[in-house]
Write a protein that binds this DNA or RNA. Structure first.
Lengths: 182, 182
DNA sequence: CCATTTCTGATACATTTGTACCACTATCTG
DNA sequence: CAGATAGTGGTACAAATGTATCAGAAATGG
């Protein structure tokens, strides 16, 4: 079905504008507010653009969540070996300016619980998290159990950061991370 | 506006049937599949029943998630002081037969991130979690930081249980919990 | 038992939403 | 540059969905 789409440079740009718009709509109105018209309007494009680049509304939402997750996973991978202070700064931005991307990641996670075709994409984040934790604890290579616990704690910490907004400053986050990794 | 509803015993029963049906629909079709007709059909009731007992679709969804969260929070509270083996068994059921209720709780959490009127309800779970952790670590009353870390790890562990289905058996869960609390 | 309130269930209707359509333009390829 | 391919945007329409309506049944309270 999906005839080749977004083959021209302009086409790719418009598709990307739509994907970005999906995240903004998601942030403002939640998953139930994501529809062709709202996304097209948010992207400043006509309705037909939203139907042209995706095979359906599910495809559009999944594509946006997938891309957000991929970006976050890549950021996470880039943090391997970085000082705790840097990581704390990135995570502070993660739940601040990029809050919508962070939420998108968890939305994808829960979508994937019902849709197997999304499992692999959603799992990207957790594999990235595991890798990042492993990179930070090289001396514990023989202790996968301990690494797993740290990953759980970091996940829970991130959710609290999103949910309560605490910790939120880079300093607080650095303290929390240091405690978790100790 | 909400005129007094569900005043008769039969009315309360029907309302409850609808709330239960919401969770089943949520499990099968996701949040986007929750609508009056689907819920009424799942409950074996006519459409009008779903409109009569709730002021709108948002009220219906929120009521169902709220109730699921309250029940889970109460179960959590009841675990205070229970042996680890018991807790592990309950949590195993939590992500097994009651998986839909567990997912509902997180759905509520993310709904509440955009809807302040749900914040208090969604927070019930985390207050329950904090209390349960505190009850299990009485000697650490003076170390709230440590308790917070344990709560993060338990939250992350639960998400992994839901997401990966691992750990899943009571034995594995008990081992994981023992490690987290140690 | 009677008057009042609550509930029932069928139907109807306006709005929202997904998607198809199509004439037209832009872009690419040789 | 000419033909082919890709993209555009306005319009239309069917299906899904939220909600109102209402006559009548059931339950309640005195």
């Amino acid at each position: 079905m999906a005839a080749p789409r977004a083959r021209t440079a302009k086409g790719r740009l418009r598709r990307q504008l739509l994907l970005d718009a999906v995240l903004r709509v998601l942030e403002q109105f939640g998953a139930s507010g994501v529809n062709h018209r709202a996304v097209a309007a948010e992207a400043g494009l006509p309705l037909a653009a939203a139907t042209y680049y995706f095979s359906g509304i599910d495809d559009m939402l999944a594509s946006a969540l997938r891309q957000a997750t991929e970006i976050q996973a890549r950021v996470l991978a880039g943090l391997a070996g970085a000082p705790l202070r840097t990581i704390a700064r990135v995570l502070s931005a993660y739940v601040g300016e990029h809050r919508y991307a962070a939420i998108a990641q968890y939305e994808l996670l829960f979508l994937a619980m019902r849709n197997d075709s999304l499992r692999e994409d959603a799992d990207l984040w957790y594999r990235g998290l595991d890798d990042a934790v492993a990179a930070r604890m090289p001396d514990l290579a023989a202790l996968p159990e301990r690494r797993r616990q740290v990953a759980w704690a970091v996940d829970g910490l991130l959710i609290q950061m999103l949910w309560r907004g605490d910790p939120s400053t880079p300093e607080e986050i650095e303290t929390a991370l240091a405690a978790v990794f100790s």
